[in-house]
Computed example of a mutant assay.
Amino acid sequence: MDLEKRHLKTIDWSILLILLGLGMFSYIGISGSAAGPETASRQVIWYIFGFVVLFVTLLFDYRLYSAAAYVLYGIGIVLLLAVLKTPAINNAHSWFDLGPVLFQPSEPMKLFTILTVARVLAKRADDPDRFYHFYQLIPVCLLVAVPLLLILIQPDLGTSLVYTGMLATMLIVGGIRLKHVLILGSLVGGFFGVMTFLYHYQQQIFFKIIKPYQWDRIVYWLNPDLEAMGRGFQLKQSLIAIGSGQLFGKGVNTPTQASFGWVPVGESDFIFTVIAEKMGFVGAGLLMILFFFLIYRMIRIAMEAKDPFGSYVVAGVVGMLTFQVFENIGMTIQLMPITGIPLPFISYGGSSLLTNFLIIGVVLNIGMRKDKLRFD
């Protein structure tokens, strides 16, 4: 441990204040859902544990996390393989049932992947030709592809997509060339082209690749009125609840559509809907402003980091959180298809919350050790 007074002076305290603000929104959202105040109180306990995890993370120089990156990555892969053998919960093999809590290994694996990719990129940081050839991207992409595919077969499409956001931001900061971006874009475009062809002419093959329930999410995202009381119910009720909140909301203590259970999983996936209904456009807008400033402060830390490893780590975290926030809020307002991605620091869940606090702890660690030791 090397935490000193000079480090405490350089902690980005504004991020800690933002986390407290997000905690207040989390309590309001969970208590206003069908889960009720009892579940919200448990979230407060998770928040307390989260801050403990965060401050413990600050005790150690972040370069220790670089040294342990490969080991952590290996442990994460073993956990992702092991969780596939567990009994399904909500039709997915994503959790270890530890009795009072459920542990989701895909959450800490986000940090392990970011640390590992950052270490690989940092080793090449001084090489101006590190991404001159397209094949040089393959090792980095494979590091992300392995956990992504393991999570995809759980199946958990939403969480697996988060890894693409992490990879994209880290490669951009790492100096990926424009022509390689175009090549990757062409590959993605080609994939969608092939899938379109299969859908129109070989649906048997198409539905072996895309699960029927995943396709339903796209169909009823585009037109929830096809089954307003069936497969489009969740999105339809979300839109009604958000619209009914109007400018200032119905009130934190007022019984609402969400509190009576008309907004499914309002304490988790659709917690933004609950907040918008309770607090209106103003409250929902304030929540998004908090997320904006959280991302902004992390970008500042990435720009001021004293080494490439720190910059890459924070870039990966920015990509991860930005993708999750955009997808979660977007799916509640019909901007994005519905997935099971939680809203960071807001949705109920111990694994996700503690992992996010651990990740923010690493980011703050990088920020407070950005200055080299000086002798006056």
Rank of each mutant, 00 (worst) to 15 (best):
M368E: 13
E277N: 10
M170T: 03
F270L: 14
W215N: 11
S238G: 14
A40V: 06
Y163E: 02
S106Q: 13
E267F: 07
C141H: 04
R374I: 14
V71E: 01
F197E: 12
T86L: 12
M170Y: 09
W46E: 09
N356A: 02
Q334N: 12
K306H: 03
F248A: 09
F206G: 00
I275F: 10
Y65R: 02
T159Q: 07
L64N: 14
L137H: 04
F375A: 03
G193L: 12
K372V: 11
Y213E: 09
N253W: 15
K370Y: 08
K9Q: 12
F197I: 15
N90G: 14
F131L: 06
L142S: 03
I28E: 11
V56G: 00
S66D: 04
L54R: 01
W46N: 13
I172L: 12
F357G: 08
D371F: 11
M320G: 00
G99C: 04
S259P: 03
R124T: 05
I359M: 15
D129G: 01
R231L: 15
F207I: 12
G251W: 02
D376G: 09
K208D: 10
G165P: 14
V101C: 02
A228G: 00
T273N: 07
L247I: 13
H7W: 11
F134Q: 05
F270I: 09
V313A: 10
K372C: 05
V53M: 10
A67Q: 14
A302H: 01
L81C: 11
I210G: 04
I89G: 04
K211Y: 09
R297I: 02
L239F: 03
S41C: 00
L98F: 12
M24K: 12
L335F: 11
A258S: 14
A276I: 02
Y47A: 14
Y163G: 03
